[in-house]
Structures are given as structure tokens and as C-alpha cells.
């Protein structure tokens, strides 16, 4: 589904990602962990197609297409979704209207029929109810005045409505209390299926208790330094990221 080969990405001229190799297949959940500044969010933005995130070397293909050739909206229509670490507030744009515009733009791009407002409302209400999100938030402006937890839930509601093939969750756990974390994880788990994949970017292991990954990768200074199964996340939780500086991967493996 997603194939990243020797990916180098520069932001405003400085290189952040220095040769990422990663392959994600349908049905898999990958966790990407690593200390602050290792380039986790940069990978998410680069995949979603943010301006100023320049691919200087290597390649990314998604659903058989070269991502670099595609605009952000084309990537979305192809099934790529990024849950933002800091969802953007957009005063004056109604949340439900925004999501319906997004869904219908994607459907149109895929040659599917657009959804009428009644069917859409049913869909979005179900998604919101599943996440215990208040209906009133749908009538408000996108993320405006939402609490941190409400913003994160709103991201997952969008994901549930848009039904992407690959969802990248960028620190979706940050700023959530335990109850909210469980609800968000539950929302994601409901979307797990054999034809959908997830890339879960997180600093901490706690989300991964609820959202058990098939693979865990550790990112440091723009490279994946080690990969393993879900146990790797636990070892990281015990040892922190200090070993990256001290003895490298061998120190972690020795423990």
C-alpha cells in the first residue's frame, strides 16, 4: 500500500529525514516512535503533501502512485489521511459543512456519486456518537474553541467519515486524559480492517496499550534505527530514548 524508499525530506532547506525505508501493507498497524525532533511529524506532513516539505531524494509510492506528483487533495482522494497533532481552527467554516465538502470532493474525484445532506448527517452523527462527541460540535466552526480532547476526537470523526485506506495519526494521544485516550483508541480500533492500514506516530507507549501495533519503528535523527514487534514499545518505555545517544541500538537489544 505504502512504500517509502530512501526518503530524504528538507524543510526550508534543512534536511530532517535522511533516508527512510518503510513498507506498510493493508491490514497492518505500524507505530513510529522516537524522541522529540527525530522527524516523526515531518514524515506525516511530507506524506500528506504539505508545502515546503521538499523531497530531495528517494521516493514514496501509495496505492501504486508516486506521491510526489500529487496535490494534498489528490492524496486524500486516493485514501491517505493525516490526523493532525494540532488540528487547525477555522472560524467561519461550519464543521459539518466542511466534512461534507471534503467527503463529496473525494467522492467526486473518485468518480463516485456525491452524498446528499440527509445521508451525510446520518453518517456523521453515527461517527460522533461512537466517539462520545457532542452533536453541537458539528454545528460549530471547525475546531474553533474546541478543547484539546474535542479537537482530537474531531480528527477521528473525520477519519471515520472519510474512511481512508491509510491513516497517519500524528501524536493523537498528546493532550488526552485516560478516558479520552481510551475512547479515541476505541474509535480507531473500530476502523481496523484487513484493507486499511495505520501509521501511529507517538512519543509514548501508552496509546499502544489500546491500539496494539503489528510493527514498531524507532526514528532517530531522520532515520529508522530499529524496528520490531509490539514488545519494542515496552522496552522503549522502560529505557526511554537515552540509549540512542549512549550505545545505540545494541544497548537497547542488550537490555
Amino acid at each position: 500500500m505504502l512504500k517509502i524508499e530512501n526518503l530524504h525530506v528538507a524543510v526550508n532547506g534543512s534536511e530532517i529525514l535522511r533516508g527512510i525505508n518503510l513498507e506498510i501493507n493493508a491490514g497492518e498497524v505500524h507505530a513510529l516512535m522516537g524522541p522529540n525532533g527525530s522527524g516523526k511529524s515531518t514524515l506525516g506532513y511530507a506524506l500528506a503533501g504539505r508545502e515546503d516539505y521538499e523531497i530531495t531524494e528517494g521516493s514514496v509510492s501509495f496505492m501504486g502512485k508516486d506521491l510526489e506528483e500529487l496535490e494534498p487533495e489528490e492524496r486524500a482522494a486516493l485514501g491517505l489521511f493525516l490526523a493532525f497533532q494540532y488540528p487547525v481552527e477555522i472560524p467561519g467554516v461550519n464543521n459539518a459543512y466542511f466534512l461534507r465538502s471534503a467527503l463529496n470532493a473525494q467522492r467526486k474525484a473518485r468518480g463516485e456519486e456525491e452524498l446528499d445532506s440527509v445521508s451525510f448527517l446520518k453518517l456523521v452523527r453515527e461517527a460522533a456518537a461512537g466517539l462520545d462527541m457532542d452533536d453541537s460540535l458539528l454545528k460549530r466552526a471547525v475546531n474553533e474553541g474546541f478543547s484539546g480532547g474535542e479537537k482530537k476526537r474531531n480528527e477521528i470523526v473525520q477519519m471515520a467519515v472519510l474512511q481512508p485506506k491509510l491513516a497517519i495519526l500524528d501524536e493523537t494521544d498528546s493532550g488526552l486524559d485516560i478516558d479520552a485516550l481510551q475512547q479515541v483508541a476505541e474509535g480507531v480500533n473500530q476502523l481496523r480492517s484487513s484493507d486499511r492500514a495505520f501509521l501511529v506516530i507517538t512519543h509514548y507507549q501508552r496509546l499502544l496499550d489500546h491500539l496494539v501495533p503489528d510493527y514498531v519503528h524507532v526514528l532517530s535523527e531522520g532515520r529508522i534505527v530499529t524496528s520490531g514487534g509490539k514488545d519494542l514499545a515496552h522496552r522503549l518505555e522502560e529505557k526511554g530514548y537515552a540509549w540512542l545517544r549512549e550505545g545505540g541500538v545494541k544497548a537497547l537489544e542488550a537490555g
Binding site: G49, F98, S101
Partner: peptide, 20 residues
């Protein structure tokens, strides 16, 4: 970028933001 990342084409996203 947020609007585009959800699938809304750039020209439509600009219009939405201007109206907003």
C-alpha cells in the same frame, strides 16, 4: 493545507476561507 488534506481542492479551499 488542513482543508486540502481532507480532499478539498485548493481553489475550493481558498474560496471557503475567503467566505469564512
Amino acid at each position: 493545507f488542513y482543508l486540502q488534506s481532507r480532499g478539498i481542492p485548493a481553489s475550493q479551499a481558498r474560496m471557503l476561507l475567503k467566505q469564512a
